[in-house]
Design a protein around this nucleic acid. Structure first.
Lengths: 210, 210, 210, 210
DNA sequence: TATGAATGAGGCTTCATTCAT
DNA sequence: GATGAATGAAGCCTCATTCAT
């Protein structure tokens, strides 16, 4: 089956981890869905945990890259840059919805793997975002703010739609897997950037002098 | 051991579900931590799932009540009312941090229990919040908005700090279990209500005529 | 099945460890032979290793006791005492042939359990036997000898018939499970005590003066 | 890698079988230690059992040869001949300590391979040793004795030091891998031959007439 | 000749639950 | 009402081996 088998395993794993959780998914379930011998999973990924680790890494490589791409715009204004980053993350998560949900859930569990992810990728994420926040404050684009609290809010806004898709569709009747959703929701986040982060006093000043 | 035993089980279960996840926690782990016979858990709660259900119900009873308490202020302005609701939820979650984290995670898993919770408590939550949103729009306190998208954002803001406490402390160096945090963070949410929900045109109008 | 089940497991385990070795025996084999649920083995003995440990302990408790019983005769002469000890060990091993063979084999494998057994029971055995040897030398019953080398020989003589019963019956045509064998073989060991350990010079001296 | 690889496998296998037992050693362990592809083992030796068989054969070829070499001295006296045989075996085992221990253990397990070894090499061993014993009895060098019982004892004396080297060093503080040990221990066996096998009446007679 | 991929069988252990007491 | 014994199912992983290359 070759590389195909490995890919099939990952795909099946993401789908099952997504709906049943990591601990709620057995290696046999994955193997059956991927039409693969259960022993192959240990063979390819060392262990079930190794498979999870693989998923984590795959997700966060792309995730951090999303941020880095947007970061290059920093000199065109902190707000613009942050918007681009948010947009990139939004579409990245939109395009990897199952993986995203799974990650957002599993990262909330105390474990060795999670600790490693936090001390690498999430540290990097915080570093980048702080940089943008601090630049914005320095240029007075943003009001004086605690950047960590802002990061928290931004992450909350970007995560919620993907954490519980079932809730989205069945309770809110918002369909996160339609392109329309992503487009609209990212505009909401722009509102948050403009309305919460940006320096309102300047706004008012400009309005007043007009 | 009587009712004491039952309470001890719930307490232990919340702590373990919180750190290891529901599927990552065994009935024996819980029994050991609660210093109780494992058979007691099936005895009291019918099954391990019954215990989870008990936790869900306990959480959402208090959660919905938090909303209902704030809702009574609706006639004093939608923004004020929403702020009160947000504040209530914030402190409720703050006072039940372990339980909150566990619920936020487990509700993202597809299961019968979750479906039932969604069709009751979360439906009710949506109903209440929509009411506030719509009132705010009608009175022109809020700009014209899609209430579901606002609910989504509000929930995102209120959830994130509790979903991953490890991340909070180790990466952001924000300590969610200190009272200071809750106080500060709720003010951030007020900013969101003021800056994103409220009718900016009115703002500008008032500023202009001043 | 009660205590019966535990005993049945031990009995089956000894038989299978004896013929197939510890690592060559599966928990399922044991359970099947004992007509017991496989999970019971972990239940009773914690793990497969725990079952082995149980066998080790059971054997060595009786083994050391065999020695201690004979040791009480030390004041009636070292040779007599040693003969009694050898006789006790001989019959103990004869009455627990399967267990004995299994132990003699498994104790030759490097493992944590074995290390523990050595540092307790076998240390005690050495202590007792050294005591007898040294007394014999002091009273000039025994020739001057290195007691550790003598212990080695004695243990070799006492072990060999039980280590490989298949060899005994099929090659040497000696049936170690017949009472006759034990009786005859213990006399051979007496010869060793008399002929190798005891002070031949004294023998010769007495002969000379006759 | 050629024949080199085959030799490396055997060497690694002996070391691992020695310390962990045959069933406690996996083909992958051996391959890793030998720095060889696991499939090579099946390739060279047909199967894991084939590798064991190879070890058995290698050991017993040398073992029987040790006996045969000593046997040529039969006409210079049974006692002398037996001493030479014992000495040869002693040094052979001393020079192949790991292999010896492994063989002594594995031969105590019931299996097809062992049965075959017994019906060839061990039969031959018994034949040779019986021949010496019977000659000694005939020439009245040895007292009247049951040769099988004597073989048993001799094998016990020769085996014990090698069966459990860990016990030797840690409990008895005798180091079997030092040359000094082999030299000293073989003299002990000579004592056994002189003191237990040889015709004491003749001894006494000669003493008396002196 | 030599090997990396792949596999089915079976390894031990843990699971949630039941039931007699 | 509460529990210790017992269980069948299922957990993950390792095994020796095979096969195409």
């Amino acid at each position: 089956m070759g590389e195909n088998g490995k890919a099939a395993i990952v795909k099946a794993a993401i789908a099952l981890f997504n709906s049943n959780g990591f601990d709620g998914t057995s290696i046999r379930d994955i193997a059956k869905k991927a039409k693969v011998n259960p022993a192959n999973i240990s063979y390819y990924f060392e262990s079930k945990n190794g498979l999870l680790e693989h998923c984590f890494t795959a997700f966060f490589e792309g995730y951090v890259e999303s941020i880095e791409k947007g970061l290059s715009l920093l000199d065109q204004g902190a707000a613009n840059c942050l918007k681009k980053i948010a947009e990139n993350i939004m579409y990245y998560q939109y395009e990897n919805m199952q993986l995203t949900r799974m990650i957002l859930r599993e990262i909330s569990i105390d474990s060795q793997i999670v600790r490693e992810i936090m001390s690498t990728y999430l540290m990097k994420e915080r570093f980048y975002l702080s940089k943008v926040m601090e630049r914005g404050v320095k240029t007075r684009e943003f009001r004086t703010l605690a950047s960590n609290y802002m990061i928290l809010q931004l992450k909350g806004l970007l995560s919620m739609p993907f954490l519980n898709t079932q809730y989205m569709t069945e309770v809110l009747h918002v369909l996160p897997n339609e392109k329309y959703f992503a487009e609209k929701y990212i505009r909401e986040i722009f509102h948050w950037i403009d309305g919460v982060l940006c320096n309102r006093e300047i706004d008012r000043f400009y309005l007043a002098v007009k």
